[in-house]
């Protein structure tokens, strides 16, 4: 780990001022991503600005929804009574990620900036455009026909520069519930839709979000879900717990009086370069009856533009089946989630 200076910010304005004076600085909250990446040499800040004491750790509820401070821990958000009752998809997604210890440390603000899990990104000896622009994409491989270890990589939203998958569970749910990210800069405060917060890699994979270098995440807003909404998160992984998603799906759904789908939000995890909102799947679902055929058609639409690589082609079928399973569970609860 590089040597750095450590300072404790006392307010959002103080944190931003300190950041303004130190271009090489990083904010540290829970530390679960940043310290990990610093140990790997991927992050080498010369100043750490501790933002654990900015007074951003409250959750308040009003008629618009839930206002969550950026420093609320993953655990506190997942265990919040209103979240469990009204946004179960959020609670489920958070509890599907990492371990209790890490969820106790991690903050919702930090989670929006969770470090990438691609093995090439995390290994400074390997090529990675996301980490070191211009070095190549190790996961795509150095020579044709010899791709890297890309089983965990994305099939949606990739580019020739980067095929890494976004690793978050919580962010997938945030996209599905139309959450907004509250951002402060020295000049003004703004709200960004969670869906827009994340940037596709394109030819600048090193820029992963729309958060500016002089900006600070101060909170998240969860708007009320439509009346009668059902929501669910399901994750498929290599072991029963404490593993990143191969595929996941977060869905919010309402049915009209005739039993047709009149609101659908579909977000996919493990398969996209960013937490993947599938407008294609939503469009296929809208006005349809909640049948297996409609679900299957939505899943196929979601992955119509998918590009498989050498070791991750299975994610297309698995991603589709994951989404179909969630949709089925939402309309016929308990049909199959037993052992």
């Amino acid at each position: 780990m590089n040597p750095f200076r450590y300072v404790k910010a006392t307010s959002p304005a103080d944190a931003l001022a300190r950041m303004g004076r130190n271009p090489g600085a990083r904010f540290v909250a829970g530390g679960t991503t940043l310290l990990d990446l610093m140990k790997l040499g991927v992050e080498t800040p010369d100043v750490l600005i501790d933002i654990n004491h900015l007074g951003l750790d409250g959750i308040t509820e009003d008629r618009h929804g839930l206002h969550i401070g950026a420093h609320v821990s993953n655990t506190d958000l997942a265990e919040h009574d209103s979240v469990k009752k009204k946004w179960p998809v959020m609670s489920q997604a958070i509890l599907a990620g990492a371990s209790t210890q890490l969820r106790n440390m991690a903050t919702v603000g930090g989670n929006l900036l969770q470090g990438n899990r691609c093995g090439y990104f995390r290994d400074v000896a390997m090529p990675c455009n996301r980490r070191d622009p211009g070095t190549g994409c190790g996961a795509l491989g150095e020579q044709p026909g010899v791709e890297g270890i890309n089983r965990y990589c994305a099939v949606l939203g990739t580019s020739p520069s980067c095929i890494a998958a976004h690793p978050s569970d919580m962010c997938v749910a945030l996209v599905a519930v139309d959450a907004k990210v509250k951002i402060s800069s020295p000049a003004f405060d703004r709200l960004e839709r969670a869906e827009d917060f994340f940037r596709l890699p394109g030819d600048t994979p090193q820029i992963q979000t729309r958060l500016g270098p002089d900006e600070l995440i101060t909170g998240i807003e969860l708007p009320e879900l439509p009346a009668g909404a059902r929501s669910m998160y399901l994750k498929v992984r290599d072991r029963t717990s404490y593993a990143y998603a191969l595929t996941s799906a977060a869905v919010v759904l309402t049915l009209d009086a005739k039993g047709r789908i009149d609101h659908a939000r579909v977000a996919l995890g493990g398969v996209g370069s960013v937490p993947w909102r599938s407008h294609e799947a939503e469009n296929a679902l809208l006005s349809s009856p909640p049948t297996e055929e409609a679900f299957r058609a939505a899943a196929e639409a979601a992955f119509a533009g998918a590009v498989p690589y050498q070791y991750n082609g299975f994610k297309i079928a698995l991603g589709q089946d994951t989404l179909v399973r969630v949709l089925n569970e939402l309309v016929r609860p308990g049909a199959g989630e037993r052992p």
């Binding site: 899990r117 093995g119 090439y120 290994d123 000896a125 390997m126 190790g138 491989g141 150095e142 020579q143 010899v146 791709e147 890297g148 270890i149 290599d238 072991r239 593993a243 990143y244």
Partner: peptide, 17 residues
Amino acid sequence: FDPYFGRVMTPNLADYH
């Protein structure tokens, strides 16, 4: 192992399950 570089690509307890 990376097939080209021969580097261990699962050298931790999150990637080696």
